[in-house]
Design a protein around this nucleic acid. Sequence first.
DNA 1: ATGATGACCGCGG
DNA 2: TCCGCGGCCATCA
Length: 105
Amino acid sequence: MKSSEQQELAEKIFTVIGGIPFGKVASYGQVARLAGFPKHARKVGQLLKNLPHGSTLPWYRVVNSQRRLSFPQDSIKFLEQKSRLQAEGVVFSKNHVIAKCCVWE
DNA sequence: ATGATGACCGCGG
DNA sequence: TCCGCGGCCATCA
């Protein structure tokens, strides 16, 4: 894959993430698909990992395909993402699974 | 060049 | 629900 395509891929992925509605979540794979790069779910995670700390991008609205957060339960990142989502009204069950109705369709 | 590593995914068992 | 496995692909040692 050419670096020019990489650049485009990144831009589209950021655009899609920025388009996730308040109170909704989308999976890494879903974001990749909507961006037009269905096989690049892992790239979505990589981009979010390298996101500058002060970014306004709603990174926390991206979860895995199981509707769970991709962080160990005890970690700071896990707690931050969960609280940010809860602040938007996203519902979690006891086992940390997000309610189906909160998924962006 | 080669092998290991991920904020992943889907399909079983 | 909870694993394990194979597929996927950029990044890095």
